[in-house]
């Protein structure tokens, strides 16, 4: 089905309505639970915003390190299995890069402002700079 406005746009409007019109009337545990619910809507909104290209990029990265093709979930399962079975080296540069990319992509949906993500990116930038030297 394709029509407008898009799901992400509608979700943004619902989240804004709850935050601006409903939140001020609540207190205590209900206010807390509403904040959690608004965060949930925002998470789904971000997930709706993932483009076909982004999904294909992630799939291609996995397919490349595994030298096989398949659904992203199947490939993710295969990567986990091979790491556990010690059939792939997670420290090989392309495997490491793949793991970082798929994890950062999850964070972009789940918690883009997570402090641990900021710190990880800052430390990674430092490490890469040192490697260039």
């Amino acid at each position: 089905m394709q029509d407008e406005p898009k799901p992400a746009e509608i979700l943004a409007a619902v989240a804004a309505f709850l935050r601006e019109e409903v939140q001020p009337h609540l207190k205590g545990n209900t206010a807390f639970q509403l904040r959690v619910a608004i965060n949930a809507l925002e998470l789904v909104r971000r997930e709706c915003g993932i483009t076909v290209e982004q999904g294909a990029h992630e799939n291609a990265l996995l397919a490349k390190v595994l030298a096989m093709e398949g659904e992203t979930m199947t490939l993710t399962g295969e990567l986990a299995r091979r790491i556990a079975a010690r059939q792939i080296d997670p420290f090989a540069p392309d495997v490491a890069a793949c793991l970082w990319t798929i994890t950062e992509a999850k964070l972009e949906v789940d918690q883009p402002t997570y402090g641990g993500l900021t710190r990880a990116r800052a430390k990674l930038a430092v490490a890469e700079k040192e490697m260039d030297r």
Binding site: L99, T103, E104, K106, L107, D110, Q111, G116, A120, L124
Partner: peptide
Amino acid sequence: ASENEIDLLR
């Protein structure tokens, strides 16, 4: 859980 995944990578 993904927060812990990025922490683990770091």
